[in-house]
Simulated assay, not measured.
Amino acid sequence: MPATTLEPTPAAVEPAAIMAVPAEVRLKVEPDDFFALCAANPDLRLERQADGGVIVMSPAGSRSGGRNAKLVIRLGMWNEVHGLGEVFDSSSGFTLPSGAVRAPDVAWILRDRWDLVPPAEQDRFARIAPDFVAELRSPSDTLADARAKMAEYAAQGVRLGWLIDPMTKTVEIHRPGRDPEILAKPATLSGEDVLPGFTLDLKGILFD
C-alpha cells in the first residue's frame, strides 16, 4: 500500500514566534534578503542601513499620521496640476547609492528620472535617490537621529529635504553641500527650484 503524506490542518499549524531584539543587538541582511524580510513582515516599518543593519521603526501615532497625510495630500494636489513627477508616501522604500534603503515620510521624484527606472526595479526598492524628501518628526524620534537621516539624504543626492518638527515648531531645510537652514514657526515652505511653484501651507502639519 503506498505511503500517505498527512498535511497539517490549519488548526494544527503553530503560530509564528515573535523574536524580541534588544536595542544593543544589530541585525544585518543582504539587499535581496531585506526585500524578502519586508515582504514577510508587511505590518512592520523597516529600513536598511548602508552596512546592512536593519532598523525597525515604530508606527506613527495617530496625530502624527494625520499630519503626514495632510503633507502627502498637499504635495499630491500640486503634482496633479503640474504633472512634473511622482509622489510617494511613507510605505515606499528607495535604495540610495550607498546601499541604504530608506522610506521617507514623503518623497517626490522628477518624472523623467523615475521613468528611467526599469519597471522590475520600481516594484522593489527602486535604486534612486528622490529629488525631494520630507520627514515629520514624531515623539518617538530623537532629534539627533532625524538630523542624521536628513544629512544622509543630502549626501546621497536628494536635492531638497525638510525636517518638520511639530514639537519645537521648527523646520530644518537640508540642501547638498550647505549647512541646514532652520526656520522658527514658518507659516509656509517654498519648494524652490526642485518643486517649482509649490508652497506648503503648514497649518495642521507644524501647528494646529
Rank of each mutant, 00 (worst) to 15 (best):
E86K: 13
L189M: 11
H82N: 13
G161T: 04
S90R: 14
A155R: 15
R175H: 06
A126H: 01
V171A: 00
A69P: 00
L84C: 01
D131S: 02
L96A: 12
S91T: 15
Q122M: 04
I109Y: 04
S92K: 10
I173S: 00
A151I: 07
W108P: 01
Q156I: 03
S91E: 12
D112I: 01
V101E: 08
W108F: 10
E172D: 15
R137V: 14
R147V: 10
T95P: 12
E172W: 08
R102Q: 09
V101H: 08
P139D: 05
F88H: 05
T170H: 13
G177W: 11
A187C: 05
D105F: 06
H174W: 15
G191T: 02
D123P: 00
A100Y: 10
T188H: 14
M167C: 01
D105L: 09
V106G: 04
K185M: 12
D141N: 15
F88L: 07
V101R: 03
R137K: 10
V72S: 08
G93S: 06
M167N: 04
F94D: 04
S138I: 03
I164A: 09
G177Q: 08
I173T: 03
R67L: 06
L116F: 01
R113D: 08
G65A: 08
W114K: 00
I109L: 14
T95W: 07
T142D: 07
M167W: 10
I182N: 04
V158N: 03
F125D: 05
G93T: 07
R67T: 08
R175F: 07
A129M: 03
D193Q: 14
W78N: 02
L160A: 02
R67E: 12
D179S: 13
R63G: 02
E86I: 14
S90I: 02
L71G: 06
Y153N: 08
D179V: 00
R124M: 07
T95E: 15
I73A: 12
T95S: 13
G93H: 07
E86L: 04
N68R: 06
A69C: 06
V72R: 00
D193V: 13
L195E: 09
L136Q: 03
E172C: 07
R137S: 09
L110D: 15
E121V: 01
K185N: 15
P139Y: 05
I164C: 09
R124L: 11
R113A: 10
D105C: 10
D145E: 15
I182Q: 09
W78Y: 12
D89R: 00
V158F: 04
R63V: 14
G161V: 09
L84F: 03
A120R: 12
A134V: 03
S92N: 13
R147C: 12
D105E: 13
R159N: 01
D112C: 00
R147E: 15
I164M: 05
